[in-house]
Nucleic acid binder design. Structure first.
Lengths: 197, 197
DNA sequence: TGTACATCAGTGAACGCGCGTTCACTGATGTAC
DNA sequence: TGTACATCAGTGAACGCGCGTTCACTGATGTAC
C-alpha cells in the first residue's frame, strides 16, 4: 500500500468518523481528539489531510447534501401529477431532515466568518434542488416566466424549510411532529392548486 | 438613591448595553467584559444582578420579541381586507427582521442544553403572534375548525419565517433582498385567495 | 540487489487563547441602640 | 444626633476549562546510484 493510498484511506476514515459523530451527537459535539481516536490516527495526523476541522465538516456537509438530493429523487419515483410531486418532495425533505436531524442541521450551521461566502458546491447543490422543484412547478403554473418560476421555486423551498425547521425544533411550540406532513400537504396543495386536500 | 434603586438601575443599564451590542455585532460578539465597560460597572457586578450571561440574553430576547409584536401590530393599522392583512403581517415580519437582523437572529439562537425547554414567555409571545395571524385567517378560510385554523397559522408563520431567514442569509443563493417582499406577497396571496397578485 | 540518503506521514505533548465565572477583599450604606 | 456594627454591593485579578492547532521529533517508505 503506497503512501498516497494510506493518505486517501485516512481521509476516508476521517470523513466517515466525522459523519457518524455529527449524525449521532451533532456538529457541536465534534472534537478533534474523538475523531482521531475513531479514525485510529494521531491527533496531528488530521492536519496532514485537512487544513482544519472546518474543512472536514464542509466535506461531510457536501456528502449529506448529495444524500438529501438522492433521497428526494428516489421518493419521486413513480407516476404522479405535478402537484402531487411537489407534496412528495416537501415531505421527502421533511423525512430526510427528521431521519438525519443532526447532519441536516449541520448544513445550516456553517460558521462563516463575516467576509466568507458559502463554498461553490453548496450553491450548485442548492441550484440542483431548485431545478427539481422548478419542473413540476412549471407544469402547475405554465404562465410563469423562467425567472418568475425560479423565484417561486426558491420561495417554496424556503417555506418548506421553515416549516420543517421550526417543526422539528419544538421552538414553534406545540407543533407535534406528526403535524408536519399534513401542514406541508395543505400548504402545497393550496399553492399548486391540486384540490385533493 | 437606595441600594435597591442602584441595583435596578444597573440591571437596566446592563440590559440596554447587551441590547445595543447584540443589535450591532450579534449575539456571538457579546462579551462579559465589554458589557461591564458599557454599563460602567465591574466585571463581577454583572453576577450580582444576573445569574449568568445567558439569563441576561433571555431578557434582551424577550424585549426584542415584544418590539416585534408591537411593530407588526402597528403596521396593521388601517382598513384592509383579511388577505391584505396577512400580506402586511408577513412583510412587517420581514422588515423587522431586516432592520434588526442580529437581535432578531438572537431570538432563534437560544443555546438550550439538551434537557432544557424554552422559557415560558417565549411560548406566550409565540402564541400571541399566532393569534394575530389566526384572526384574518379565520375570515379568509371560514370553514376551518379552531384547531385547523391554529395549525394553519403556525404553518404560515413557519413558512414566512423560512423565506425571511433564508432570504436574509445569502444561503439560499441568489435571492436578492428586494425579492423577499414580492415572494411573500405571491405566497400569501395565493394562499389567502386574494387574486390581486 | 544493496547501501545511503531524503522525504514526509505519523506522533502526542504542549501551546495559546478566549472567556464565563468565582472569590477574597473593600468600603459604602443601612440599622440598632 | 452620634457611635458601633453588620451587610452586601462593588471590585478586578485570577481561575478553569475546553479545544483547535502547532511543533519538534521518529521512523517507515521511497529514490538515487
Amino acid at each position: 500500500m503506497t503512501t498516497a493510498d494510506r493518505r486517501a484511506a485516512l481521509r476516508d476514515r476521517l470523513i466517515d468518523a466525522a459523519d457518524i459523530r455529527i449524525s449521532r451527537d451533532g456538529l457541536g459535539a465534534l472534537k478533534a481528539r474523538d475523531l482521531a481516536q475513531d479514525a485510529g490516527c494521531a491527533l496531528g495526523a488530521i492536519y496532514n489531510v485537512f487544513p482544519s476541522l472546518t474543512d472536514l465538516v464542509l466535506v461531510v456537509n457536501a456528502r449529506t447534501f448529495r444524500r438529501l438530493g438522492a433521497f428526494v429523487l428516489g421518493e419521486l419515483a413513480g407516476d404522479h401529477t405535478p402537484a402531487r410531486q411537489m407534496v412528495i418532495m416537501a415531505q421527502a425533505y421533511h423525512h430526510f431532515a427528521a431521519a438525519n436531524r443532526h447532519a441536516w442541521g449541520a448544513m445550516f450551521t456553517v460558521d462563516r466568518l463575516p467576509g466568507e461566502t458559502a463554498p461553490g458546491w453548496y450553491r450548485d447543490e442548492m441550484d440542483g434542488l431548485f431545478t427539481l422543484i422548478a419542473g413540476p412547478l412549471g407544469q402547475v403554473m405554465p404562465t410563469l416566466s423562467g425567472p418568475e418560476r425560479d423565484r417561486m421555486a426558491r420561495t417554496l423551498f424556503s417555506a418548506v424549510h421553515g416549516i420543517v425547521a421550526l417543526g422539528l425544533d419544538q421552538a414553534a411550540g406545540g407543533v407535534s411532529v406528526e403535524d408536519i406532513d399534513p401542514m406541508l400537504e395543505v400548504l402545497l396543495s393550496r399553492i399548486a392548486g391540486d384540490d385533493a386536500a
